[in-house]
């Protein structure tokens, strides 16, 4: 690995993976950046999962940040899904209904990007066909 590659990897690890602050960096400013990234992520997940975020009210950004602090971002769809799953029985009912709706349309193994379910895909095809006939 080149110097640049390892230095960049160490920085990303400190910002999103719970890694140590690399030598020579300003700790206060890196922490401010880390917090800003988490605020931005919480907002993006709230857009993708409005009921999930709403069910935590004003504590959503802090609740999400506490969970996401050492988990690198996987995109807002997966981040919200992973958060909801990890909440288990503690997941509020509003959020649970949103998760169920997603699970009807998409299958997600927690490792690779969610994929549209066969039945949901067929339903969409049928609706295209109906529109095409009109």
């Amino acid at each position: 690995m080149s110097d640049l590659a390892s230095q960049q990897a160490a920085l990303v690890s400190a910002l999103v993976g719970g890694g140590d602050v690399p030598v020579g960096f300003d700790e206060f400013r890196l922490e401010a950046t880390r917090a800003a990234l988490l605020r931005k992520r919480a907002g993006e997940v709230a857009s993708a999962w409005p009921l999930l975020a709403a069910s935590y009210g004003t504590s959503w950004p802090a609740t999400f940040a506490a969970w996401a602090g050492t988990r690198p971002p996987n995109g807002s769809l997966r981040d919200g899904w992973d958060f909801a799953r990890s909440a288990g029985d503690a997941l509020p009912s509003l959020a649970r209904s949103e998760l169920s709706a997603r699970q009807r349309e998409l299958s997600y193994d927690g490792k690779s990007p969610p994929r549209r379910k066969r039945r949901a895909a067929l339903r969409q095809l049928a609706s295209f066909a109906t529109r095409a006939r009109k």
Binding site: A5, S6, A9, V12, L37, K40, P72, P73
Partner: peptide
């Protein structure tokens, strides 16, 4: 991104 991780944000270069 670096080391297989996404930062989810634009980061400065040295």
């Amino acid at each position: 991104r670096a080391g297989g991780r996404e930062a989810g944000h634009l980061l400065p270069l040295p």
